[in-house]
Structures are given as structure tokens and as C-alpha cells.
């Protein structure tokens, strides 16, 4: 019982603090170097430890806490998938390389020039495109740079791992939400089951 109480108190504390600024902060790093390693490693302001800029960041990392990002456009995965689009239609990089990638606004506008142009969210999209800007999508799935994780999508897709294994059933989601902890336990249980490499150096560099 005491464990559970402690868990609750601690959990709430972390969560509460994190929420204060969850909406304003960019992810310090992201999956497979979505941003450049230099930006991701927080080179400028190492204070708490070289690996974590603040105690909070260290705690969040330790407890696998990842704030839910607030997306600039309430993108609806469900609708797109219902209309027959595949994950790889937009995230083509997943089959080809390390990163799944997020399509450019020009890719979205190829359809949305004509489709659902009255929808206020689509109008937001159109205004980004008109300004020559990308939609500032917030990363959903990422690792702390201090984890030194190297993750490549393509080998997993080739091995027949379904996107849902890590990302959940996106066809039932609107805005994408982090579905798995993506911690070592999560990765390794699958790697062990499929009898593939569990060597540290395969994933950590």
C-alpha cells in the first residue's frame, strides 16, 4: 500500500510540473535524430548533469514520462486511414530508412487544394502553405538524447513488424499519441521473442 501511495504522490508531482510547460516546450530530442544531434543533445546549457539539463528532465527520462505535445493542427489520422490511405503513404521513410518522416505541407496540399477546404483546420494548413512555411508539428515519439538510442525504421518494417506494434492502432486515433513507453523492456521483449540482436551496440551508440 505504501508503495502505491508513494507512486501516486510522486507520479502526480512529476506530471503536474511537466504539464505546466508541456505545451511550450520542444522535445529535447527525437526519434533517430529527427533534429540534428547538436540541437538534440542540448549542447548549450548543460546544468543539472551533462546528459540532462535539469533535474526535471532527468526525472522525466528516468520515469519514461513524455509530455503529450500540443499539435498546431488537430490532424485526424482516423479519417485519412478510413479513406484508404496507408501509413507509408505519408510516412514513406519508414520503409526506406531510419526515419518515418512527416510529409511536407506541399504534400498535404496536393489533396487539400480541393478537399475539405472549408474545414478550419484545413484552412490553417492552407495558410501555412501560403506563407511558405511547414506546419510546426511536434514530435510524439522520441528518445532522450542521453539514451544514445539509434533506431532505424526500415529493418523493422522489412521484418514485418506492424506499425501498430509501437504506435498503437492509429486508425482509431485522431491526433497521434505516444502509445508505448519505448523503453528497453518494450524493445527487448520483442527482440528476444523474435530472436534478433539484443546486443547493446545494435541500438545504443
Amino acid at each position: 500500500m505504501i508503495f502505491l501511495a508513494a507512486l501516486l504522490v510522486a507520479g502526480l508531482g512529476v506530471l503536474g510540473m511537466a504539464l505546466v510547460k508541456a505545451d511550450t516546450r520542444g522535445a529535447p530530442g527525437s526519434v533517430a535524430g529527427e533534429s540534428t544531434p547538436a540541437a538534440a543533445s542540448g549542447l548549450s546549457s548543460g546544468v543539472f548533469t551533462p546528459a540532462h539539463r535539469t533535474l526535471l528532465e532527468a526525472m522525466e527520462d528516468y520515469f519514461d514520462y513524455f509530455p503529450t505535445p500540443v499539435q498546431p493542427i488537430a490532424f485526424n489520422h482516423k479519417i485519412h486511414i478510413a479513406k484508404g490511405m496507408k501509413c507509408l503513404s505519408c510516412h514513406a521513410g519508414a520503409a526506406l530508412g531510419p526515419q518515418a518522416g512527416i510529409p511536407s505541407v506541399t504534400f498535404c496540399m496536393a489533396c487539400h487544394q480541393v478537399i475539405a477546404t472549408n474545414n478550419p483546420e484545413i484552412q490553417k494548413l492552407a495558410s501555412y502553405a501560403a506563407e511558405g512555411r511547414e506546419v510546426p508539428w511536434q514530435p510524439v515519439n522520441w528518445f532522450y538524447p542521453a539514451a544514445h538510442v539509434r533506431f532505424w525504421h526500415a529493418p523493422h518494417i522489412r521484418a514485418g513488424v506492424d506499425c501498430t506494434t509501437c504506435h498503437g492502432n492509429v486508425s482509431q486515433q485522431t491526433v497521434a499519441v505516444r502509445q508505448s513507453d519505448l523503453n528497453m523492456h518494450f524493445c527487448l521483449s520483442c527482440h528476444r521473442e523474435k530472436e534478433v540482436s539484443v546486443d547493446c551496440a545494435t541500438c545504443h551508440d
Binding site: 535524430g33 540534428t36 538534440a40 548543460g46 531510419p98 539509434r150 551508440d205
Partner: peptide, 8 residues
């Protein structure tokens, strides 16, 4: 991008 940055 394939190699991480080692911190202090």
C-alpha cells in the same frame, strides 16, 4: 546523424 554526441 548515425552517431550520437557523447556528453561530458
Amino acid at each position: 546523424p548515425d552517431v550520437s554526441i557523447r556528453e561530458a
